[in-house]
Write a protein that binds this DNA or RNA. Sequence first.
DNA 1: CCTGACTTGGGTAATTGGGGTA
DNA 2: CCTGTCCCAATTACCCAAGTCA
Lengths: 84, 84
Amino acid sequence: MALRHNNIPDVLLTPAEVAKLFKVNPKTVARWAASGKLDSLKTMGGHRRFWKSDIDRILGIKPAETRIGQLRNLSIFEPEDKRR
Amino acid sequence: MALRHNNIPDVLLTPAEVAKLFKVNPKTVARWAASGKLDSLKTMGGHRRFWKSDIDRILGIKPAETRIGQLRNLSIFEPEDKRR
DNA sequence: CCTGACTTGGGTAATTGGGGTA
DNA sequence: CCTGTCCCAATTACCCAAGTCA
């Protein structure tokens, strides 16, 4: 799994990041989400975030790892006595 | 294990942890709390902590799919109207 | 030519990110 | 080192008009 500098895997992507991957306008990505073509969740402020696993699967880059699987691997979900 | 106001066992997350989960800046999480969009409590030093169950729910993760969620699924911790 | 479905781009308001500071 | 707060620029959401095409 791709790890960031802080050892936390990238799970969500911003509209701009998705747009760069597909080489489309960020506005187009928003329309994909609005029309249900691409699943997304929203921040408390209403901005969209996309599941990296969805994007990877669509791009055919990686054998899809489930969203839950990715989240489970986050260190903050480990038992507190085994952190760090 | 921290107990929430409704006596349901829960886990607390720091602003940085919540920020990573939502792929936003920690300062954004602080704004959510300051504006009442996200429930939080404050440590004795004035720093915020967030309820993991809140984050899970917003992210669209079913309780059964998380560690703490497994505990919450015990019927004795479930609200009457939601027991199964 | 007209029509309906769809896509694209502009304008505006709101949210977010990053710097500086405490 | 992490966080809270303020400021300002960048990003995004949403609405709506203009354009495309069958």
